[in-house]
Simulated scan of single mutants.
Amino acid sequence: MIPWRTALIGSLLLAVPVCAHEATGKNGGRMTDAGAYHVELVAKDKTVDVYVLDGSEKPVPAAGFKATAILVVDGKPARVALTPADGNRLTGQAQVPLSVTPKGAVQLTAPDGATASGKFN
Rank of each mutant, 00 (worst) to 15 (best):
V52T: 10
W4D: 08
H38E: 02
V50A: 11
G104Q: 03
K119F: 00
Y37P: 08
G64N: 09
G87A: 07
V42P: 04
G28E: 04
P17F: 01
V50Q: 06
P3K: 13
Q95I: 09
S117F: 02
H21L: 12
G113C: 06
D74Y: 07
D45V: 15
D33W: 01
G113P: 05
S56M: 15
P77R: 07
K66R: 03
A69R: 04
A114F: 06
V50W: 10
P59G: 01
T6C: 14
F65E: 05
V18F: 07
G64W: 05
K76M: 13
A94P: 04
V18K: 13
G113L: 05
E22A: 14
G10D: 12
M31E: 13
D54I: 14
K44E: 15
G118W: 02
A78W: 03
E57R: 12
V48G: 12
V42C: 10
S11N: 02
K58D: 01
K103H: 12
V48S: 13
G113K: 08
A34H: 02
V73T: 08
R89E: 09
R79Q: 06
L41E: 00
D49F: 06
V80P: 09
M1C: 14
A116E: 01
K103Q: 10
M1S: 15
W4M: 03
K76F: 13
V100P: 12
L98R: 05
A36Y: 04
V39Y: 04
A15G: 08
A78G: 12
A7F: 12
K26S: 11
V100G: 13
V50P: 08
V106D: 04
D74V: 12
D112S: 08
T68E: 14
L108H: 01
A63Y: 00
G25A: 03
T68L: 11
K66G: 03
A23Q: 15
A78C: 12
P111L: 02
L8V: 09
A114E: 06
A34S: 06
Y51M: 00
T91P: 07
S99N: 05
A105P: 03
A36N: 05
V50S: 11
P111W: 00
K119R: 05
P3T: 13
D45T: 15
V39W: 03
G104P: 03
R5L: 14
I9D: 07
W4Y: 06
R30P: 09
R89T: 07
G92H: 00
V42A: 12
V16L: 03
A67D: 01
C19K: 08
E22L: 13
I9M: 12
G55P: 04
D49K: 15
Q93W: 10
I9T: 08
R89I: 04
T24A: 11
T6W: 15
A67V: 00
P102E: 12
A43I: 05
A114N: 07
E22R: 15
G28M: 03
A43K: 05
G104F: 05
A63C: 00
D49A: 13
Q107A: 08
N27S: 10
V16N: 03
A23F: 13
